[in-house]
Design a protein around this nucleic acid. Structure first.
Length: 534
DNA sequence: CTGGGGATGGGGCCC
DNA sequence: GGGGCCCCATCCCCA
């Protein structure tokens, strides 16, 4: 009996302890939640303060840049190189690593050639390059100069000021600028290069509007440098030791400003420790359309190649060494066209988004608008490709156009198919797709973007599956064999096509001569040759 | 030798 | 991602 009472007592104690424990846990949770809420509140306040400080910093930088423009002598050619305390990588510009990428096959820089800055070796200098066009005209090509830190050239810490009447300013040059043809700046502008983070900010500023182009590079692993020779191949050289390299990533979209003027997602948020390059471009007040056209000129070649150069750097990064995120962000402050959705960091869009912006400008300013395809055709064919300005670009351009026509012929065009499911439209051809990812892939038809590069033959592909299929060419893998003749094929569709040899199947009949063919293309060729007048 | 047609390789791109 | 279709290029055969 005593044992029974004892057991009951223990049970009661256990239950009490359990209740107390539950209460304690609940109270702890409540305290944690409260503290967490307070912490989040403090965090948000801190973030707001940071944003405010960043804005102030931006304003100050812009003011400094403008003051330098106003106070500098027009005829002077200077480069101001502010040393910010960190040791600059000696030989950064002259060693095996190159600081910018020059398209292969071009020994000299052209006006419209972009210059990709590679600040991946921890350089910490800040360059303010002010270019006024008139001097550039007078001085001729190659007035921009930059010296490594170790050089004692007095021009090292100068402002470059040139003044040209017209032209486009490529982002920046950091190597061998003696050979660089100085771009003819259409407007008076200053270029502020801030080295210290892998962020490159292009700013085109007027009194009311600022176009900020942010190029963010996040490199992990070792510091890779571009090889101009390899860059010559479609602007998409392969990476050694990797099967293929999807260089453009659809992520990071959330980081892009949408032209709302909010600095939350601006380039300065991308990391303080990063190297950044900032270019402030001053334009004639009230001439924003021209200035923006200047920027869109980048998309017609300068910028596209610029970004493709960066893109090429991404290709050079080894897959095994980590993720490479190449991102370019275009930010508009001020009067932003409502249809603007262009940000070069749009995963796969490359310079094409400038076209979108240009299109939106035309729309918003009641300028005679082109169709998207027309706008595309209006562009320099070179800029439609990922590579340098070689003949392949024109081929690619034709391919893009043809593929565009073909895509329409294959049911493309306005919301082909089931529109209720294909509600994601291609901005080029208005074709509908079921999900945004498919649109992104499809847009490569128009942009010519081919992020997947074969490491063995340097051929680039727009889709990963195409690369995978292609690699059987090198591996010799032919998993599909014909049961009739033991002939082997690397692809199933090839086997299927071959199978018609045995079945004598000829499903495609000429309507003019009743001749039959096993493939539609045979029929088409036949009709072109024999019934071309029809 | 030439041209038409067949077979095949391979890229583009949509589903 | 894979399947499938389209297309083009190339080679070969043959009338």
């Amino acid at each position: 009996m005593a044992n029974v009472n004892c057991m009951g007592f223990h049970t009661q104690i256990a239950s009490i302890i359990e209740v107390l424990a539950n209460a304690a846990v609940a109270e702890i949770c409540k305290l944690v939640d409260d503290d967490y809420a307070v912490f989040r509140l403090e965090m948000s306040q801190s973030q707001k303060e940071n944003r405010g400080l960043r804005r102030k910093l931006q304003i100050l930088e812009l003011k400094v840049a403008r003051e330098r423009v106003l106070t500098s002598r027009p005829s002077s050619v200077k480069i101001l190189d502010r040393y910010r305390g960190m040791a600059r990588g000696e030989g950064h510009l002259t060693g095996g690593h190159r600081s910018f990428v020059k398209p292969a096959g071009h020994n000299t820089w052209r006006d419209d050639q972009p210059i990709t800055v590679d600040e991946g070796s921890g350089t910490s200098t800040q360059h303010v390059i002010v270019i006024e066009s008139a001097d550039a005209e007078a001085a001729g090509p190659g007035v921009k100069q930059e010296r490594t830190e170790g050089e004692k050239d007095p021009r090292h810490s100068r402002d470059i000021q040139t003044e040209t009447a017209a032209g486009v300013m490529p982002p920046v040059a950091t190597e061998d600028l003696h050979t660089a043809a100085v771009p003819q700046a259409r407007t008076r502008r200053s270029i502020l290069e801030v080295s210290g983070t892998p962020n490159a900010v292009l700013k085109s500023k007027t009194d009311t509007e600022t176009l900020t182009v942010t190029h963010r590079l996040l490199h992990t692993g070792s510091d890779h440098r571009s090889d101009p020779e390899r860059l010559g191949r479609l602007g998409c050289p392969p990476a050694s030791g990797s099967e293929y390299l999807p260089v453009f990533h659809q992520s990071q979209r959330m980081d892009h400003s949408r032209g709302d003027g909010d600095g939350d997602g601006d380039a300065l948020d991308t990391g303080v420790d990063d190297l950044s390059c900032s270019y402030a471009t001053e334009m004639d007040p009230g001439n924003m359309p021209l200035g923006l056209e200047t920027q869109t000129d980048l998309s017609r070649g300068e910028w596209n190649r610029y970004s493709s150069s960066v893109y090429s750097e991404g290709c050079l990064d080894k897959k095994s060494e980590g993720l490479v995120v190449d991102e370019v962000t275009v930010k508009l402050e001020g009067n932003v066209p409502p249809t603007w959705n262009g940000h070069l960091g749009d995963g796969h869009s490359q310079g094409r988004d400038f076209l979108d912006y240009r299109e939106s400008l035309e729309t918003n300013q009641n300028v005679a608008t082109h169709s998207l395809l027309h706008a595309f055709r209006d562009r320099d064919p070179v800029s439609t490709s990922m590579g340098p300005s070689d003949s392949h670009s024109h081929i690619l351009f034709d391919q893009v156009l043809n593929s565009n026509d073909r895509s329409r012929a294959q049911g493309g065009g306005a919301t082909s198919g089931n529109s209720k499911e294909k509600r994601f439209l291609c901005m080029f051809c208005n074709k509908g797709f079921s999900c945004p990812q498919k649109v992104e892939i499809h847009k490569r038809v128009h942009t010519g973007e081919k992020p997947f590069s074969c490491t063995q033959c340097h051929v680039c592909f727009a889709q990963a599956g195409d690369l995978k299929r292609h690699q059987r060419v090198h591996s010799g893998e032919k998993p599909y064999s014909c049961p009739q003749c033991e002939k082997r094929f690397s692809r199933q569709d090839q086997l299927k096509r071959h199978h018609m040899v045995h079945t004598r199947e000829r499903p495609f009949a000429c309507t003019h001569c009743r001749k039959r063919f096993s493939e539609r293309s045979y029929l088409r060729i036949h009709q072109q040759k024999n019934h071309s007048t029809l």
